[in-house]
Design a protein around this nucleic acid. Structure first.
Length: 519
RNA sequence: GGCCCCGUCGUCUAGCCAGGUUAGGACACGGGCCUUUCAAGCCCGUAACACGGGUUCAAAUCCCGUCGGGGUCGCCA
């Protein structure tokens, strides 16, 4: 039975690299019909765990990465919060002490630091002297008499080699002598990550530890703990990093400013921020950051697109296929096909996936996607009347693939505001309306428009062609001015579709209003 | 610095284990067509085996070395 886990610490956000790790664990587990466990690594967090966990759980659920055991679903090995498992770790520490795999150490932090610096100075690898190691109760008393406090350290082997069989990298060899006597318990009794992690992996019966490559170097100490405690070893698989755009360095939330130098990255961020700004969401990099999953959810990306893109970041199937349904991903996923080299995150390629997925969404489904955005800015009431819903469907139909993410609907304010409230883009007005003769021409066009029956795209187009013939002009000579007159902007969807959706009354009123700008 | 990992177009990658490909696909990019702005669509194109030695009739593929990049070396997770 395969059992894997994803173990986030409650940081308040779901990192794109983290979610890729979660996804690979999930995919592997579903592929083998096992259980995926969510464990919360909150040994170091005292406050607001629930709050800081919220975006992480929401993000995973949004992406369809469900967990069989963990927060909010429980499970046979509960609790799944490390902060609630302290006694279990305490027992493990005691056992480690008993079997001689760990010791109480009375060194002061500055003393360790001094040894470390000396090693660096003398250009040799640092290994703790164990000078303040207390092996007997008498040692302990002596050190305590000096006002010292004890932490518990691992007593690592100082010779021999360890070979870790990594499912992705093959055998990886380590020298025990290089390993440090890591602290596993602080003086105040709290336990540290490595200890807690190994104990929980065992307690939860984790069979496969699939995690980012940064953990490869500290796997030996975990193996040491597991072996000392008599645990069977899980299988290890260390995933390549999700790297910065155009680089091999691990992607980081903090360095966004740097990534913004990449044109493609900057474009996508700019696009997202425009939508966020319209929604009244904060757009500072701390709360609105494309390295964080929430960014995509808020802007209106499809979770399937993100999942598909992320799956291909470090993994590929054996053919040239790129588009996979969730079921196909599960069916084809294997750790053997996971790459070893870091894969850099490319928001532009994600955008391409989003584009393809969005095209496939049927109109009624798209209406549902877009509706919350329209309601949020108050253009559409809540609940949404059937008539308005039909109008939105019309707009969506006419917009076609121009709407790449749900938030793009906000570009079409002119369908939702009243004729009086329509705003005219000064640049567009200057370029398209302030041309001599435009006013007269628009007026004559308007007269024709009043007659069209029925007021539908085909009829409108026929009428317009008739009009340009009579006038002896080209289509472009009327259509640009007309677009600005009825929509206030020089870009948008097909003109005749737009006119039909707006309706005769609005078109006439808006042209009338626009005449004040036209020459 | 020690140890560990990694290295195919700008990016994601196929090919490597079982040596023989005009080194393939996708995104991006450039050009052209279409055109009613935008988005798209269609056609064409630029672009890579880090380097150096071996082994072999033949090397992206096997071996050795070099260089480069990254990770780790916490009383963070």
């Amino acid at each position: 039975m395969v059992r894997t886990r994803f173990a986030p610490s409650p940081t308040g956000y779901l990192h794109i690299g983290g979610v890729r790790t979660a996804l690979f664990n999930w995919l592997f587990t579903r592929r083998h019909g096992g259980q995926f466990i969510l464990r919360i690594d909150d040994t170091d967090q005292e406050r607001h765990v629930a709050e800081a966990l919220r975006p992480i759980l929401d993000g995973l659920r949004w992406l369809g990465i469900d967990w069989d055991e963990g927060p909010e679903v429980g499970g046979p090995y509960a609790p799944y919060y490390q902060s609630q498992r302290l006694e279990i770790y305490q027992k493990a520490v005691e056992r480690l002490l008993e079997v001689g795999a760990a010791y109480r150490d009375y060194a002061r932090p500055e003393e360790i630091q001094a040894e470390r610096e000396a090693a660096v100075r003398e250009n040799r690898p640092f290994v703790y002297s164990r000078r303040w190691m207390a092996e007997t109760a008498e040692d302990a008393r002596r050190f305590e008499a000096q006002g010292r406090q004890a932490v518990v350290r691992l007593k690592m082997p100082r010779e021999g080699k360890l070979v870790i069989k990594d499912l992705i990298r093959g055998p990886v060899e380590f020298d025990w002598a290089q390993e440090q006597d890591h602290v596993i318990q602080r003086a105040d009794g709290t336990c540290l990550y490595h200890l807690a992690s190994v104990v929980d992996d065992y307690e939860f019966r984790i069979t496969h530890v699939i995690r980012a490559e940064e953990h490869l170097s500290n796997t030996p100490r975990q193996v040491f703990i597991a072996q000392a405690l008599g645990y069977p070893l899980p299988q290890y698989a260390h995933l390549p990093f999700v790297a910065e755009p155009g680089s091999r360095v691990k992607l980081s939330k903090r360095k966004l400013n740097q990534y913004l130098k990449h044109k493609e990255f900057a474009e996508r961020v700019e696009h997202g921020r425009r939508i966020a700004a319209r929604l009244g969401l904060p757009t500072d990099l701390e709360s609105f950051n494309p390295v964080v999953v929430d960014f995509y959810r808020q802007v209106g990306y499809l979770p399937e697109a993100l999942v598909n893109y992320l799956a291909l970041l470090g993994w590929s199937s054996d053919d040239n296929r790129e588009i996979f349904t969730r079921e196909e991903l599960i069916r084809y996923f294997s750790l053997e096909k996971v790459n070893k080299a870091p894969a850099s995150f490319d928001p532009q390629k994600l955008w391409a996936f989003q584009d393809r997925y969005m095209r496939a969404v049927p109109i009624d489904k798209k209406v549902e996607l877009v509706l919350p955005y329209l309601q949020r800015v108050g253009w559409v009431p809540q609940p949404c009347p059937e008539l308005v819903r039909a109008k939105i469907a019309q707009i969506l139909q006419a917009a076609g693939d121009r709407i790449k993410v749900a938030g793009d609907i906000l570009d079409y304010s002119y369908f939702f505001v009243s004729d009086e409230q329509l705003e005219y883009d000064p640049t567009a007005v200057e370029k398209r309306l302030r041309i001599p003769g435009t006013a007269q021409r628009l007026r004559r066009f308007s007269e024709q428009l009043a007659q069209v029956e029925p007021f539908e795209p085909d009829r409108l187009e026929a009428m317009t062609h008739q009009f340009i013939q009579t006038e002896g002009i080209k289509l472009a000579d009327i259509i640009h001015a007309l677009r600005v007159a009825v929509t206030g902007t020089s870009i948008g969807l097909g003109m005749f579709d737009a006119l039909a959706i707006l309706g005769r009354q609005s078109c006439l009123a808006r042209i009338e209003r626009a005449l004040q700008y036209a020459l």
